[in-house]
Amino acid sequence: MTGRLDGRVALVTGGGVGIGRGIALALADEGATVAVTHRTHTPDEELLERIGHAPDGSPLAFSLEATNEDEVARTIQAVVDATGSLEVLVNNVGGLIGRCDIGEFDLAMWREVFAVNVETTFLFTKHALPLLSDGGHIVNVSSVAGRNGGSRGVGAYAAAKAALFAFTRATAKEAAPRSITANAVAPGLILDTPFHETFTPEADQRAIIAGIPLGRPGYPADVAGAVTWLVSQESSYVTGTIIDVNGGQYFA
């Protein structure tokens, strides 16, 4: 049985846990050789077994600080050196950092939120594009917060995730002459992730679910399904778009 991504190499940033892990596993299931980056969440044994491996047998899992340009550039080159190519980049690194009202937000924390969510996407895209094969794909993982401003205390996060929409479209235009597509996904409430385990109490989760037309939360596999389609040849004429993965919680 062949997969939609046989023969392709994919790099998933922040791939050790949650949405990133789900995406990495889904791409591997479709035949891709998958590399992941991680920092705070070390990949588990199942993930390490199922992702790609270097010629020496070591899994293609790289621990790095994603806001460090030198580390980003070295990691991307290491993936290409180990596999011979790069066809897919999924920019998944991101985080809320903490909840804080705008009037009390510290400038340093504001900048940290943008660094984690926007600068990482810029750095990986900047250094991957020259090495990405023509006809390749980039997917940026944003959030419904970038659509609707999020809940109270996430102003910086919402602004950063909205910035990813514009950056995605700028990338789509710039990469189009090489038939490289760039799209984004905007997940809503996705459980089984550190994000909501840390920042969204169960009572708040239940309240959100009550307002979702499909009547359930999402899970990493729901996001992974959309990403898998966006990096397959089935979507080769789709670029510069944002796919909302939220069960009807928000309509664009």
Rank of each mutant, 00 (worst) to 15 (best):
N92K: 01
V227A: 09
L123K: 04
A166D: 09
S179R: 13
L107H: 14
A162N: 01
R8N: 07
R178H: 06
Y237A: 15
A182W: 03
V238E: 03
A54G: 01
V79F: 06
E87T: 09
S151G: 14
F62W: 08
A128S: 15
E112G: 14
Q77H: 14
D244P: 01
A172V: 09
G136N: 05
D134Y: 07
V93P: 00
E87F: 11
N68A: 15
A158S: 10
V238A: 12
A170G: 12
A163C: 10
P213M: 15
A176N: 01
G14M: 07
A145K: 03
V154R: 13
V144E: 14
I76T: 02
F251V: 15
A82K: 03
A10W: 02
G146E: 08
G20A: 07
I243R: 06
T200K: 08
G211R: 13
H127K: 08
L123A: 12
S63W: 13
G16H: 04
D134Q: 11
A210E: 13
P217Q: 11
P213Q: 11
T2H: 11
E69K: 09
E30C: 03
D204I: 14
T193D: 06
G22T: 03
L164C: 04
N148T: 09
Y157L: 12
A166E: 07
K161V: 04
E87W: 12
G22A: 11
A35E: 02
L129A: 15
T125Q: 08
E71Q: 15
V238C: 10
P194C: 12
L123G: 02
A184H: 04
A172H: 09
P59Y: 08
T181L: 09
E197M: 13
P220L: 09
T198R: 14
V80I: 09
V223F: 11
S151Y: 14
G57R: 06
E119C: 08
H41W: 13
S232D: 01
T181N: 07
